[in-house]
């Protein structure tokens, strides 16, 4: 069995989640090929080649792949899919975008967001915002799978796979990149951080998030938010944790002024330790918290920043 993994990257760096996808793929197949498609992304191919389980890297360097638009990327995957038993990518907004397109082009079902590989055709995945875990078996000729990064460790590095350049796939351009607004932050990336501190509606406004940032910087933590905090415009959308935001599983998750609705819990309840700071002792977040502090966050956050 042979797995094709589509690397996630920004044309310079391979995203760490790809190493987790490789780990999942290694449980499905003995031969692992990584496809790196982008523009001036040779360095990314080198990084992928160093992942120990990888036997070959396919590099497609072409303008049309610069922003990983779903239409050209799916066509490229299809052009190179022959002979693979599994096609995998991370269940990030990028993987979620192009992978179902790949699956439908192959006339197979996709299995989304797996959290374990039971056997090469059987996987576990959360459904209903993580309130149930389904074990599903695929009888499709090719298993098209997206992988929840936080559920798998990174694979070992230290390999030196061969890099082979491949041609771009032909196709009419029906979509075009117009622009992007990417959040710039010196803090760790949310899905990869060891400590995450998130604020909710209880923060009241965007300026008050400074109280969170101060604690975050003391802890070297990433900062997240509930949907309410994003909807209210306190912070940008890329900080949302939950069923429809990012999934995080740090060593320590600190929820501040967040009530703990199921959609939020879906994004953080696999964290090793959960701390909740909320003035309402009935808040559902306390049901999943290892350590709960019933108090006003405007007292607690400055005290925390001071004490750390």
């Amino acid at each position: 069995m042979k797995s094709l993994i589509i690397a996630e990257h920004n044309n310079e760096h391979l995203a760490p989640v790809t190493a987790s996808v490789v780990k999942a793929a290694a449980l499905c197949a003995d031969e692992i090929v990584v496809l790196v498609a982008g523009k001036n992304c040779g360095e990314v191919a080198e990084q992928a080649a160093r992942l120990a389980p990888v036997s070959k890297v396919l590099l497609c360097d072409d303008d049309q792949y610069q922003y990983a638009l779903a239409e050209p990327l799916a066509s490229l995957v299809i052009a190179n899919a022959e002979g693979f038993s599994h096609i995998l990518a991370a269940a990030t907004t990028s993987g979620k975008n192009f992978m179902p397109r790949v699956a439908a082009m192959l006339d197979v079902e996709q299995i989304s967001d797996i959290i374990s590989v039971e056997s090469p055709d059987t996987f576990k995945r959360p459904i209903y915002a993580g309130n149930a875990i389904a074990t599903v078996q695929s009888s499709e000729s090719v298993k098209v799978v997206t992988v929840r990064g936080t559920a798998f460790d990174a694979c070992e590095s230290g390999g030196s796979a061969a890099i082979e350049s491949i041609a771009a796939a032909p196709g009419e351009a029906i979509s075009a990149f117009v622009g992007e607004e990417l959040a710039k932050s010196d803090r760790p990336e949310l899905t990869a951080a060891g400590v995450v501190i998130s604020g909710g509606r209880g923060m009241q406004n965007g300026d008050n998030f400074d109280l969170i940032y101060k604690v975050a910087d003391k802890l070297g933590a990433a900062v997240g938010a509930s949907r309410a905090a994003v909807d209210e415009g306190f912070v940008p959308n890329d900080m949302q944790v939950g069923q429809t935001g990012k999934i995080v599983a740090p060593e320590l998750y600190i929820a501040v002024g967040i009530s703990g609705q199921i959609q939020h819990l879906a994004g953080m309840k696999e964290s090793k330790y959960i701390v909740a700071i909320n003035k309402d002792e009935e808040a559902p977040i306390f049901q999943v918290a290892d350590y709960g502090l019933v108090a006003d966050l405007f007292d607690v956050l400055p005290e925390l920043a001071e004490a750390l």
Partner: peptide
Amino acid sequence: VDGGLQTV
């Protein structure tokens, strides 16, 4: 998108 917003 995970990094922010993208317009196509």
